[in-house]
Design a protein around this nucleic acid. Structure first.
Lengths: 203, 203
DNA sequence: CCCGTGACGAGACGATACGTCTCGTCCTTT
DNA sequence: AAAGGACGAGACGTATCGTCTCGTCACGGG
């Protein structure tokens, strides 16, 4: 406990000296390979080789394969996470806009593969699950909830409507359909989900 | 192409000669180990050792680790898959009964671990996903749909209500909450889901 | 009823990928 | 200018994979 200087140096490298070149090369390589061979056959060694990087450089900055893929994902989704929803005054239309975009993302093969890798990892790594929830899921849910709150204030939802429930009822069906691949996720489908939820929660 | 007798003998062993003892021991061992170390650290070698079985005996009858866990799962859920729902005349009550049972299953640690293993595997194995969908998901959805149809005939749902949509809107939110561990799945939650969906789809 | 086919338990085997480590080089901070 | 440390490269021991090869024994067709 006393003198952990050695250990700290070993465990927490200096971020200021981190090579941005290597970092990008690694995430690039991971993204490419993810598309080529899928998550389960994605290996750290292949990422290192493709990125022309020592394996240690990966392990120095990322604790696991999942963490690397996490960065691939956040770069794909960009700054969009937690972005507030449009507010045109028409609650249904705004929700449809967002959910349609989600549907389109799910239909994009690259995004699909990455998101599945992700979902799988969330299942057997609870720590990773927490990170994903905090940094991606929660912000998005909050953004939707904000828009719902504004709609509620405008009298488009019952004053006592449970907004957390509403969020889950909007996302759940879309997610469920994608997860189990029961049917394609069309705009028509998400539109109907929105309509039904709003109908169920209106004043 | 011509003479594949050798290959056939090798590839398709005689099911009549299959050892029931070995089969049970393997599924038992897999279930135990799944509970002890989790799916990602579950190995074929450990299963074979615990079951006192040659590895080849596992590979002879199951193509993958996922397939073994599939059998663990179907044995846990028992014959319940595809069972018709109760029909007391009160659609909301019947749906709540079933969804509460689902909620309780999700809360059982053993079931939780197995189901997560499952969900993860469904993500990176499309073939496996098909098997799961056909043999577990579809029958359950159909059972719910049947009950909804009967409720629709009784005038409790709009005549033009989309029953496939309804099924997904019932299961989706529960599944979503469990999947992302956003909040505990209480009876109150599933009750509200049922109420909201029925309200959204009533005549 | 008995022979032969083939499933069984056990484990050796080569192949992969893991995560750690050790170099020598070169960049960056002080 | 010096030093510390991140870098690329790859060797290393370990773990697990899926296949294979034994010798044994039980089942089922003749």
């Amino acid at each position: 406990m006393a003198d952990n200087t050695d250990e700290r140096n070993r465990r927490t490298p200096d971020p200021r000296r981190r090579s941005q070149r290597a970092r990008n090369a690694i995430v690039d390589a991971a993204e490419e390979l993810l598309g080529e061979v899928g998550y389960s056959r994605l290996t750290m060694e292949a990422i290192a080789a493709r990125a022309r990087v020592g394996k240690q450089t990966i392990y120095r900055w990322w604790p696991s394969k999942a963490a690397v893929v996490f960065d691939v994902f956040t770069r794909l989704t960009g700054a969009e996470a937690g972005q507030p929803l449009p507010d045109t005054g028409d609650l249904a239309a705004d929700l449809k806009t967002v959910l349609r975009a989600t549907a389109d993302e799910f239909s994009d093969p690259a995004m699909d593969r990455t998101t599945r890798a992700f979902t799988a990892e969330v299942q057997h790594d609870e720590e990773f699950a927490r990170a994903v929830t905090e940094q991606l899921v929660r912000p998005n849910c909050e953004a939707v909830k904000d828009r719902l709150r504004s709609g509620q204030a405008a009298g488009q939802l019952a004053p006592d409507a449970d907004l957390d429930l509403a969020v889950e009822m909007l996302n759940g069906p879309v997610n469920h359909r994608w997860l189990l691949r029961t049917a394609p996720i069309t705009h028509e489908f998400v539109d109907r989900v929105v309509d039904t939820v709003l109908r169920g929660l209106r004043p």
